[in-house]
């Protein structure tokens, strides 16, 4: 497709984590984000699986550039994403069965995350392999970071704990890492349920945006998201 633009690694990281953070600025992939962020452990699990999918999709798309035509790019991206997610799901079920038992239902949800399609279209299809892989890593980390922020605040406000059920991620023999930061029996149901997820996400997006725009301190870039966004969230 088009010739690769040069972009520095530092710029890729800055975009992925801050100025184009997929969840908090581009508002991509909100469906899995809202569904799975009720606890920090769930958020980390889905975040890592998503990170892996973006990284691998970007890698494959960039590798396939020599035979990637403009007309068929979207079907190709969809084939790659759906195929990779299927493969990751099978491998998890075969080799990480306990983790799969917990995350099993979230893994197919990754297909619905349009962050991955957006990165394939807007970045990986135009860049050389190293840059595409780095972008996948950076965007995946940005999504993981947003999920963790939302997961941690929902778990803290909803249950008064952090990292509850850590065994689900680390295996049944690992030490219990649960931090209880509230009196026993504390519960604020709103934050564990979907409406709380919307409220907190709204707040997080507002705070994060104002912080990033103050940090970059560029007036004309009031809507930073537009530079790379091609699709909007479902």
């Amino acid at each position: 497709m088009s010739t690769p633009d040069t972009i520095t690694g530092q710029a890729i990281w800055r975009q992925g984590l801050l100025s184009s953070n997929p969840a908090l600025l581009q508002l991509l992939g909100l469906c899995p984000l809202l569904a799975i962020s009720n606890t920090l452990v769930n958020a980390i699990g889905l975040g890592i699986a998503t990170l892996l999918t973006v990284l691998l999709t970007n890698t494959l798309v960039s590798l396939l550039r020599p035979i990637l035509y403009y007309e068929i790019r979207i079907p190709v991206f969809v084939i790659i994403i759906a195929g990779l997610v299927t493969i990751i799901e099978r491998l998890m079920e075969a080799w990480l069965f306990d983790l799969y038992q917990t995350l099993g239902i979230f893994v197919p949800l990754i297909v619905t995350n349009c962050l991955i399609l957006a990165r394939a279209e807007a970045f990986a299809a135009r860049q050389r392999l190293p840059a595409a892989m780095l972008d996948g890593l950076a965007m995946g980390c940005g999504f993981l970071l947003a999920l963790m922020l939302l997961g941690a605040s929902r778990e803290l406000l909803g249950y008064g704990t952090l990292l509850a059920d850590s065994q689900l991620l680390l295996g049944p023999d690992s030490p219990d890492l649960t931090l209880r930061l509230s009196p026993a029996g504390y519960q604020f149901l709103l934050f564990s349920l979907p409406p709380g997820a919307f409220l907190l996400l709204g707040l997080l997006v507002a705070v994060f945006r104002s912080w990033v725009s103050r940090r970059t301190a560029v007036g004309q870039h009031s809507s930073i998201a537009t530079e790379t966004t091609t699709e909007s969230a479902p």
């Binding site: 035979i67 035509y69 068929i72 190709v76 790659i80 195929g83 493969i87 491998l91």
Partner: peptide
């Protein structure tokens, strides 16, 4: 050519999934 490349990519992905399954 685009059609051919789409078929090749879809075929390769199908083979990869079948192998994993």
């Amino acid at each position: 050519r685009a059609l051919l490349s789409l078929a090749v990519i879809a075929g390769l992905m199908g083979v990869a999934i079948a192998a994993i399954v």
